[in-house]
Structures are given as structure tokens and as C-alpha cells.
Design a protein around this nucleic acid. Structure first.
Lengths: 168, 168
DNA sequence: ACTTTCTTTCAAATTCTTTTGAAAGTTCGG
DNA sequence: CCGAACTTTCAAAAGAATTTGAAAGAAAGT
């Protein structure tokens, strides 16, 4: 396979993966482009490569930065801003996990908690079924929360520990 | 909190959770409704409760059945079909994991594999960066695949083992 | 303070997804 | 085989999300 084709195919695949994850396609494509770039790219280069508008580029790069998986790189003596992606894919994984947990799991945990205090006539089978369902889901959600936290934490620790090795 | 409000809030929360997961809002809401229902509901009851059209109901119920988290229930002597959700939330979790893995991870694994055979002048830094990125991502994806398989399998085994207990 | 270069914003346009509802299809009892 | 009761399909409409591009904003050199 030719390099150019391979690159296009990767960007496209990463884009659809993102789309299925509720990450917008363009954001994922920019991320893909930066992941395989040997050096940081400017907004113009990104626009050019992906055929997207300046506004779109700006918006999605900013979001990638918010997620903590892309950094702004300032080249001394240059006016332009350059962008580069975190290359350690494990860090990318945990960053995404952290971000999605914050946006998805945390809110539902809050709701589930509130819902446990539903007023209840235990004789009403609707109320009983509701309570049972909520308490099961709540248990599951707590479990998932704990697992994700462990994953995120483990990664931070791993990073910390390798960092230590570098300096000692 | 009143039961009616709690119910509405749960359905709405489950719906947004679904939406962020690339599962359509209505599908998630139907699922929520069935999760807390003390007994199986007909298409008409679902339409009524959620204020959605017949076509929409049919489509999304069918999809929930495809995912293996809702079953068609036939009441003897009744013409209508009734639907009920899998109540064991762990089983729901693994069903979703299985489904999403099939639709998301598996395709990208295929692509990544193909991309490893990119033609390459090792002196070209673009090619080198591409190869490095792909091989790291591939390693990560394989790992994730293995972890998910373990999760799905563990659940199947757990199910199998409790099933055995019932019959012995 | 002015000009140039670059970045950000946001309303309007476009594109993609979902929903509707009426028509076609299916199933079953008689 | 017919009609009633129900389910499925799908083209068109509505709605949601994304993208554009032009205008406004910032920063930096002169």
C-alpha cells in the first residue's frame, strides 16, 4: 500500500471511530492527522490537508486541547501557532476516559442518586419495579465509576513512575 | 420526589446518556421505559408513554432486540406483541460491550492491520512517524480487544455458572 | 498609533439524522 | 379466501449537528 493511501485511510478510519463515539468526525480527523505527523502542524496546514474551513479547524483544535490530547506549540521567532498530538496512546486513552466519564457517567450518577429517594407505596408494583431497577443500575454505575477511576489513576501512576525513572 | 417525576427524569437521563453514546435517544428511552416497567409493554403502550409514532417505536424496538437487551414476549391468547427488557444490568452491560466492539473496535483492528504493510522508505520521516504511530495504536487496540473479550467472556461464564446452579 | 499577520467568533447555510404517518404487508380466525 | 388486528416499511418532513466564511479581535513589529 502506498503511503498517501495509507494516510488517507487512517484518517478516515479514525474519523468514523470518533463519530461512533460521539466525538465529531472532524475533531477525530484532525487528531488522526496530528497523530501521524512527524512534527507540529499549523492551522493552515490542517485546513489544507483536510479541506476544511478555518473556523472549523479552530473550533476542533481548541476542543482537542481541552481534552488534553493536543498541545499548542510555539516555535520561537514564528508568529503562527503550531499543534501537536500526544503520541503516547495510553495517555490518549486515559484522557478520553477521563473526559467521557466527566461528561457522561458523573451526571447519571447524580440523577440516580436523586432518584433513590422516590416517594413510595411499596404495594404499587410500578413503584417497586422502579426502585429495584434504579438500585441495580446504581450499583452497576458505582462499580463502573470505580473501575474507570482505577484505570485513570493507574495510568497517572504509571506515568509518574516512568517519569521518576527518567530523572533518577 | 413523586413517582411520576422520577420516572420522567430517569427516562430523560437514560435518553441523553444513550445519545452521547451514539445510541439514538428514542432507542435509549424505550429501553429506560422497559427497564422500570413491572411487566411487558405493547407497542401502543410505548407510543403512548413516550409520545412517539408507531414507525419510530417499531424501528427502535427492533434494534433493541437486535442488541439482545429486549425480548418479544408473546402472551397466550393475545394477538399483540409485548416487549420486556433484560433486567440484569450486567447482562445489559456486556451486551452493549459486545455490540459496540463488533461495530467499532473490530473494523479499526482490520484497518490497522492492513496499514502496517505501508510501503516504506525508512528515511522519509513522514513514513517513519506513520509507522510508529500505527504500530503503537495497534498494540493499544489489541490490548483493548483482549480486555473487552475478557469482560464479555467473564460475564458469559458467570451466567453459565449461575444457570448451572439453577438446574443442579 | 498603524499595519500586518494571525486567531476567534458566530449567524447563516449546509449536511446528516431522526421521526412521522400513511400505505403495504402479515397473520390468523372463521 | 376474506376481513380484522396488528406490524413493517419508507419517502417526505422535521429537527439536530456541523461547517462555512466574513467580520471582529489580538498580538507584534515598526
Amino acid at each position: 500500500m502506498k503511503f498517501t493511501d495509507a494516510k488517507a485511510q487512517f484518517i478516515q478510519a479514525w474519523g468514523s471511530l470518533g463519530a461512533q463515539w460521539g466525538i465529531n468526525r472532524t475533531m477525530a480527523q484532525i487528531h488522526a492527522l496530528l497523530l501521524i505527523a512527524p512534527n507540529a502542524l499549523s492551522a493552515d496546514e490542517i485546513m489544507e490537508e483536510l479541506n476544511i474551513s478555518r473556523g472549523n479547524t479552530n473550533m476542533n483544535v481548541r476542543e482537542l486541547i481541552n481534552w488534553g490530547i493536543v498541545d499548542k506549540v510555539l516555535v520561537p521567532g514564528e508568529r503562527k501557532e503550531y499543534f501537536s498530538a500526544e503520541k503516547d496512546i495510553w495517555k490518549v486513552g486515559t484522557a478520553i476516559a477521563r473526559e467521557r466519564k466527566k461528561r457522561e457517567l458523573d451526571p447519571i450518577l447524580k440523577v440516580l442518586n436523586a432518584l433513590q429517594s422516590v416517594e413510595g407505596d411499596q404495594k404499587d408494583k410500578h413503584v417497586k419495579a422502579f426502585r429495584d431497577a434504579i438500585s441495580n443500575i446504581n450499583r452497576f454505575a458505582q462499580q463502573t465509576d470505580a473501575t474507570l477511576n482505577a484505570f485513570i489513576k493507574a495510568e497517572e501512576n504509571w506515568f509518574y513512575s516512568t517519569l521518576l525513572k527518567v530523572f533518577k
